[in-house]
Amino acid sequence: MLDRLMENVGRQEKGLMVLLGLLEEEFSLLTGRDPKAVTGCEFSIQELLRQLAAERVALRGHVRALDPGARTLKDLRQTLGEAGVPLDEAMARVDALEQRCAVQAEKNSHLALALAEQSRNMLDFMHKQIQPKGNATYSQRGRVSSSHPEAALFRGRS
């Protein structure tokens, strides 16, 4: 059963290495401003995260199968004794990779939000530039007409 735990943790470690690579690729695509490629990369990241979550659920099942009272690997570690040392080392590597992925994801998030803010500001600027500046227009008689922004009474001929 310990072999299953080690295999599961090994798959998680390899998955996190791939995730880190995908996050770095996403960052380079964000800096290159390639939205279609970013979207494709994002779908890959989401699928990998789904698979990693499934591995975590399977790991939890293996832990409970070994020791029904254990809820986490740390709880199980006391039961395993010296046999759990390689598992501890593997989990330390997984934790370090998770931290690196979290830092890279935070960088990607900040960059994506900054680009979205920049695009919104540029769009607002362009809208302000194309809006008419004044309300003065010419009437049918060729004079500058004044507009009444508030309600006005209409008088017709009887």
Rank of each mutant, 00 (worst) to 15 (best):
F43A: 13
E82V: 01
K128G: 15
L115V: 02
A151F: 14
M122T: 11
F27R: 05
F27Q: 09
S158H: 03
R157V: 03
V63S: 05
A102Y: 00
K133D: 11
A70H: 07
R56T: 05
G15Y: 08
K14E: 13
E42A: 11
E89T: 05
N135C: 08
D95M: 13
F43I: 07
V103H: 03
M122R: 15
L66A: 09
A70P: 07
G10L: 06
E24H: 00
L48M: 02
I45Y: 07
L97W: 00
M126D: 15
E117M: 03
S44K: 10
L59I: 01
V144H: 14
D124V: 11
G156L: 05
L49D: 10
N135S: 13
V57H: 11
L59C: 07
K74L: 14
G142K: 09
K133T: 15
R11K: 08
L59R: 06
L59G: 12
E26Y: 00
K74D: 08
T39C: 10
L66P: 01
H110K: 02
M6C: 06
V18C: 06
L52T: 03
V63H: 05
L59H: 04
P149D: 08
G61W: 02
A92K: 14
L76G: 02
R157N: 07
T31S: 01
A151Q: 14
M17Q: 15
G69Q: 12
G81C: 08
A136P: 01
G10M: 04
G10Y: 10
